[in-house]
Design a protein around this nucleic acid. Structure first.
Lengths: 344, 344
DNA sequence: TTGAAAGCGCTAACAA
DNA sequence: TTGTTAGCGCTTTCAA
């Protein structure tokens, strides 16, 4: 049966001291004699004393816990970010409570409530893709609980204790296209998903602007709205290879479709990158496994988690009365040139 | 500045009721009149009342939270398991606190303490690979906090509130080798990592036993102790292809090395699976992306997380005074036959 | 059906 | 340097 744990009161009684002295000794307060501290520590050790964080948090009004809400913990991106969050939080002495919205706006709302009820000191959120209204974040703002959005953010939702961390998709795309041009590509195709998703919209815009900036024509028949899967990429590429003037470069908005494109090119006995240079986006783990290895853009997932926690910590420290709200942070993505686009 | 949240006391004062009535109304107790309930609920709504879980947990002695401790949240396996855990826990109404040991025994110990201090109601752990002693789990056992190990378990650590969920690696390996034999392979090689890791040990044993059971000779020169990376697999395969009698089947203890093997075979102008059939282990996401697609063994990661939570829940419900400790659960892995080993 | 009162385990202001 | 006391917000027994 359950061995009730030792409490401060227990220690106090055993040693003939008051609970406050015990508490102070355990938290190594200055004004407790070394002798007393030693006695307390020893007994605590013996009884396997474990402080009750719940009680301490209730009393202090601070839980030492951060809440994290992600759409899901699968795939490549979110696990990495969560890893970054958990690691940085641990370093700063925070516990982490993690919830998944499963891409569902209602669950997201419930989880936000849950995190607030649990008295977390700050909340890190990446939006579910079905979220349209933002009332649930209103409550967080009103309570002045620091809130950091990452990756999937709410635009025009500001406040003295609200900020965001995102990666610059536009910039990443721009870099990719510039690189392809430098490798001698003159007809660069683009695979994209639906443009109402900001990741695709921004990458698409980066593609267009980079072409224009380098004096290349914008050819709408080279822009493929396709399913961003391996199969989708293969189909799109097959289509492009049948054009009177086929492309000699491809920028795919994700890695999966890029791999499909590689396979389509190879199956036509054409060479990657000599005939068609190909670059993906996200730097998935499997980009190193293809033949040729796929160039891609690293989104700095772990860094994003880390940065988000640091931002939160900064808000926590300075309080909401700082001068102006904290600026959103935009991480620079990193182009990784591998075999699939290295011609020289 | 911070809008102090409404408390039960606040509601009570406003409505001219006692805190106990408010509490009962909010938890929908039978013996509160519907009229009162309605009033309370309405006011709670208006004031955006959020119950303080910390206080409730302290009072009840139950935190409604499960602790999870994994080596890390990267790669393929652990994110999937954590996803399963988080999903199932949410379904059963538990919150989840997640920690990483970073494969470090000391951090593991500290995190176990942390989870206990946080008054979690149960703990789910997968061991760090440096953990050699198990004193920190002793404390958990003594407090009778239900403990479920998953995947990386402590052998001979039993107790009335301790159990485990693992996947049957031996069985998975046995299935693979049987399948290869059925496909007509007669000389089956095996890639393995160091045998002091139980996953490799068990898969290795499954390999041996399956060969023997089907009357095939056990040929030590076909057993490659190699680095279980893509490169390691390539090197091992190159070596094997130079043997006077080269193998016509390969069972690799992971997928990465299997992919290396495929690439080595293809680069010799041999065909997979006709000349060499290849099967990996773990069903990584990228097994669908290779040409040919790689056969592998699914470890049921999500199911493992789900099962672990259910097991914990069962312990929590029945208490430690049940008849005997809960039996460990062994999940059956699932062989997925894809192109790399399908000859017929 | 409601209220009064106690207390979960801890911390911190104040007093000695 | 140590002790006294009060209370964080909630639940629950007991009494009305």
């Amino acid at each position: 049966m359950a061995n009730r744990r030792a409490s401060i009161t227990d220690l106090a009684k055993t040693l003939g001291l008051s609970p406050s002295t015990i508490s102070r000794a355990l938290s190594n307060h200055d004004d407790v004699s070394e002798a007393t501290k030693a006695r307390v520590r020893q007994l605590a050790e013996e009884l396997h004393y474990q402080p009750n964080q719940l009680a301490a948090a209730l009393r202090r009004g601070r839980s030492n816990t951060l809440g994290v809400l992600v759409p899901h913990i699968t795939g490549h991106f979110f696990p990495q970010v969560v890893h970054g969050i958990a690691t940085e939080a641990a370093k700063l002495g925070f516990n982490v409570m993690i919830c998944q919205s499963n891409e569902d706006a209602l669950q997201e709302q419930k989880n936000i409530d849950l995190l607030m009820n649990s008295q977390v000191e700050g909340i890190l959120v990446s939006l579910a893709n079905t979220t349209q209204s933002f009332g649930h974040f209103e409550a967080v703002r009103q309570q002045n609980i620091p809130l950091v959005f990452f990756d999937r953010v709410v635009e025009d939702f500001s406040g003295s204790n609200v900020s965001a961390v995102v990666v610059d998709d536009y910039q990443g795309a721009y870099q990719v296209v510039t690189h392809l041009i430098e490798q001698g590509c003159t007809r660069i195709a683009h695979f994209t998903g639906p443009l109402h998703l900001s990741i695709h919209k921004n990458r698409h815009q980066g593609y267009r602007d980079a072409l224009l900036a380098h004096g290349l024509p914008l050819n709408e028949e080279l822009i493929m709205f396709c399913e961003m899967s391996q199969k989708g990429g293969t189909q799109a590429m097959r289509h492009l290879l049948k054009l009177p003037q086929r492309p000699n470069g491809v920028f795919s908005s994700n890695d999966l479709a890029a791999i499909g494109a590689i396979q389509a090119v190879k199956s036509q006995r054409l060479r990657v990158p000599q005939d068609v240079a190909i670059v993906g986006f996200s730097n998935e783990m499997f980009t190193m496994l293809t033949e040729p290895m796929l160039s891609s853009v690293d989104q700095r997932c772990e860094q994003m988690g880390k940065t988000a926690v640091q931002l939160l910590q900064k808000m926590l420290k300075s309080g909401p009365d700082r001068v102006g709200p904290p600026k959103p942070i935009v991480l620079k993505p990193k182009l990784l040139v591998r075999e699939s686009s290295q011609r020289k």
